[in-house]
Design a protein around this nucleic acid. Structure first.
Lengths: 237, 237
DNA sequence: AATTACCATTTTGTTAACAATCTTTGTCAA
DNA sequence: TTGACAAAGATTGTTAACAAAATGGTAATT
């Protein structure tokens, strides 16, 4: 009964706490360890986390409400598979919200917030030198959450985290090149603009960055479809 | 067993559909028919909506995840009672997000969107002349959701709807005067700025409007506490 | 060989009973 | 009167059994 999804989740330690299941799956999606369309069967999750079916179903419902999981009636739960339209919506929303976030930060950011951002950049550098792809993906998304967190606003932070997580799914689905995992120095320049107290520059740089990630996607044509065995094997493409 | 909460919800027709329960409670909160701290017992909701306990619990879990309901362990579900800090966070987030929304709309809005906004204003006028307080409250919040909807972005719209609904709770809790239910012509001036294609004016007017609502709150001292029977009845206030 | 019908198995959805916890009420003693 | 304590009742949390639906495979049919 140890199916694919369970193996991917088994890297996480078992912990019966509430909300823990949600966070684990959430993180796994953010780090692109759980690919879109991956089936999340109740039985597998129950065994993986060592909890009853109720807890699992609660977690899946929450994940569904956040667009991370797709709960299909009588069919089970699957890691969400955003459409191209959904992807455009998520990025448009991020553009609108995150430009506002950095603009305000440039108008005045706490020292603790700024130093947290700089520490984050350092961690990104370390991960890059180590060529730790998983960590780079994680930090790449977490950076945007960190920007929101500088406002000491849990409501705002939650919104951004949700959008960033969905972005991870989108990149996994539509990512053509690997520009998304290569923030290069774009993150650093955003922080510079904030530190300089230049709202316009901060806004421009994060807009540029988000558009850069979005342009690295192939939203026009087919999302990375799961291999359509029928068409392939019958030879008639 | 017909307690207070059930009576307030009984104005809604019974409908066994999924998500319906969530929407009903959601709407009731938005229209300030369900006051903060109102207990939402499972039994009452089961009877009200004519569904099993499972459906009710699912709905309550979703509402909890959106900050509309507070799910206390072994204690049951209560209409959320945001703290003053939470209130400040919600309004700060709205300020950031909604200014971006109207600024972009001023840069270019679809005709259908603009006419929808104008129809909305007309409805507000009608409700005002009729002195329909409930409808005024509903439309007052719905206006902001309508602004978001103009972007044809369900993700963004959902974020705004969540924030607006939480604002309803906040106003119910901290509302000092009734400025929140009296948008006067502030909504209209926002639309004007959008129609004029003036991003700065649009941004300024909605910022002014949101701050106006927020300033109508009393976030400094005690939120509207539930009547402290002890103090009142013993005479020593 | 392809298609359809059918049955067995697996998985999800629902219900109901049970357990645990909290709240209320009543009692008793200080 | 006040407080602690305990029993009763009500409410929530959990589990397990059951029902319904989908999946997969087999065999019959064209």
């Amino acid at each position: 009964m140890t199916n694919d999804a369970q193996q991917k989740l088994n890297t996480m330690q078992t912990d019966p706490d509430e909300q823990m299941i949600v966070d684990r799956i959430y993180s796994a999606v953010m780090e692109q360890k759980l690919a879109p369309r991956t089936k999340l069967s109740e039985a597998a999750l129950c065994e993986t986390f060592g909890v009853g079916r109720m807890r699992v179903r609660r977690a899946l419902l929450l994940l569904d409400s956040q667009g991370i999981v797709d709960l299909r009636s009588n069919r089970g739960a699957y890691v969400a598979c955003p459409s191209a339209d959904e992807a455009r919506e998520v990025f448009a929303a991020r553009l609108m919200i995150e430009t506002g976030i950095v603009r305000e930060l440039a108008r005045g950011v706490s020292d603790t917030g700024l130093s947290a951002l700089r520490r984050h950049i350092e961690q990104e550098d370390i991960a890059r030198t180590k060529d730790d792809r998983t960590e780079m993906i994680r930090l790449s998304g977490a950076f945007h959450v960190e920007l929101a967190r500088c406002h000491d606003n849990t409501v705002l932070t939650r919104v951004v985290r949700e959008l960033v997580t969905r972005s991870s799914l989108i990149v996994a689905l539509f990512g053509a090149n690997r520009s998304s995992t290569c923030p290069d120095d774009e993150h650093a320049s955003i922080i510079e603009a904030i530190a300089d107290g230049d709202p316009q520059a901060a806004e421009d740089s994060i807009r540029h960055h988000i558009l850069h990630v979005q342009n690295g996607l192939d939203l026009e044509q087919s999302q990375k479809a799961e291999p359509d065995l029928a068409k392939i094997l019958t030879g008639r493409m």
